[in-house]
Simulated assay, not measured.
Amino acid sequence: MHSLPSTVALGRMVPGAAARALPIHRAFLAPCLAAATKRSLSTSGPRMNILKGQKTDEKSSLGPGAEGLHIKDLPPKASVPVTTDNAIKGDWVLFHPVYTPEELRSVEVLFRESKTFSDKVAHSFVKIARWAFDIASGYKHKPLPPNASEMSLEELRKGGYLMDETQWLRRILFLESIAAVPGMVAAALRHLRSLRLMRRDHGWIHTLLEEAENERMHLMTFMTLKNPSLLFRAMVLGAQGVFYNAFFLCYMISPSTCHRFVGHLEEEAVVTYTRCIQEIEAGRLPAWTDVPAPAIAKDYWRLGDDAKFLDVVYAVRSDESTHRFVNHSLASLKYETDVNPFALREPDMTTKGSRICFERDEAAKFVDESHRLMQSKTDKPVEV
């Protein structure tokens, strides 16, 4: 018999102050309790707080989420939203953040200094990958000339100073088709490791799967604007085949180096989307100025009915800054023993957007804070 907490009433962050205060009940271990949860955590008595080396009662709970309302959170009589082709919307995705307008604009362009030999190796591989991606996608971003204000948009594009919408979309599609690989590879390897060793994973797998799906949803969103050619798809196929196998082998050798690599890669992604935002706001991508946000984006990020494509790019950039923060933080932990500090909750966007990562001692404090939070929110244990 295991002692399990019942449900936890915690605020899940949705845009708007009033919505933030809405209590949402989340359950644990769906087979045992009535409601399913996005992140189920089993309990089996005392365990070690790996980051602090202390024993704690393993009463699992969730910190405040940030993914907004899902179908499970609707009243019992609420209808399930469907599209004309009867595809279920909204609740078939994993946890992911939803941002307020203030959070969307809190992201900063940051770069982590390479301190160790492993860090330098990861950074060097990112430079190589960036060079290859730039060539494959035709990406270029030269500094504007002094007389840029006197030149027309067409002249700036012909001079190689600016890219048009088609070139930007090609870059983004290629980037997102590759960016969804690391999370899935890392999650699969940690899953298999957990099976081999027959012990728990310390919360890493779910976070890595969430990252993989989040990047894939970026691709699905931008695919609504363009259906790539067969040549482009062939390039993606080749790049994915090389990158998947290379990352697979590297992760078996040094997971920390691989997470540092992804952290640096996400730094570059934040730079790319920041430039895209600047180009749209400066009127240099006129075809995207008044384009409505795709329906899939409105559903995924809980955007308003009047959301524009620019709002989507802001949301994607915020996601990339989250991946930057998470992977740099995971790279600073001990792969074999440390608890994933983001298994129960994540910092708010102002933290993830303005800081590069948690160092190991900060991650330990965040885990302890999460434990205190869930102990203060749990109901009395239920015997099952």
Score class of each variant (00 low, 15 high):
Arg317Cys: 11
Cys357Trp: 08
Pro75Ile: 05
Glu346Trp: 07
Leu333Tyr: 02
Gly304Glu: 13
Pro143Asp: 12
Asp85Phe: 07
His25Ala: 14
Cys258Val: 15
Ile50Arg: 11
Phe174Ser: 00
Tyr99Cys: 05
Pro381His: 00
Pro15Arg: 15
Gln240Tyr: 03
Glu369Leu: 02
Gly263Val: 08
Ala148Pro: 02
Ala9Pro: 10
Arg233Ala: 01
Thr43Cys: 10
Tyr244Gln: 09
Tyr139Asp: 06
Pro75Cys: 07
Asn340Ile: 07
Val271Asn: 13
Arg26Gln: 12
Ile277Asn: 13
Trp288Asn: 04
Thr166Ile: 08
Ala35His: 09
Lys72Ser: 09
Gly45Lys: 06
Ile50Cys: 12
Ser42Met: 08
Val382His: 00
Gly283Asp: 02
Arg216Phe: 11
Tyr139Ser: 08
Arg324His: 14
Phe358Ser: 01
Leu144Ile: 00
Ala331His: 06
Val107Cys: 13
Val121Phe: 08
Ala293Met: 01
Leu249Pro: 07
Val313His: 02
Ser42Gln: 03
Ala36Lys: 05
Glu103Met: 04
Asn227Glu: 14
Thr378Asn: 06
Asp119Ala: 09
Phe28Glu: 03
Ala35Gly: 07
Ala148Gly: 00
Tyr161Thr: 03
Thr289Asp: 06
Ala180Trp: 08
Asp361Met: 08
Phe309Ile: 08
Leu153Arg: 04
Ala35Pro: 04
Gly263Ile: 01
Glu346Leu: 15
Ser3Met: 09
Phe366Leu: 03
Leu189Cys: 07
Ala188His: 14
Val271Asp: 14
Asp119Ser: 10
Gly11Asp: 14
Cys32Val: 11
